[in-house]
Amino acid sequence: MSKREMNWAAIDTDPRFQELHRKKTSFLWGLMLLSTVYYFMLPIGAAYFQDLFKIKVWGVVNVGILFALSEFVVAWTIAFVYSKKANTEFDVMAQAIIADAHKLGV
């Protein structure tokens, strides 16, 4: 691909780009916040809520072990949700902007 000079400011102010920016920002921050909060609940729970973590729920398997395992499931789910959204929505929106990019603002 030969590199063309683009009018970046024009693309930036294009409503479609603004829409992509808005959607992406809120989605990404939401997921980031969720994953951070969920992750830090593990060391905090292990330190300050030991009685809860010690409750046996499945034979000898206690809340603590299930919670630690759930960290993996939550991380994978977040990754899956993001990639699904990005593949079906963000990529399509970006593609529309790329297709028109060299026409914008010229």
């Binding site: 990404l28 997921l31 980031m32 994953s35 060391p43 603590g64 072990i65 991380a75 990754a79």
Partner: peptide, 21 residues
């Protein structure tokens, strides 16, 4: 036991930051 397993979680969660931002 448990503490060793808990220690491993952060190493995976780290990749959420890599993926998202």
């Amino acid at each position: 036991g448990f503490d060793g397993f808990m220690y491993s979680v952060g190493w995976l969660v780290a990749y959420i930051t890599v993926l998202l931002v």
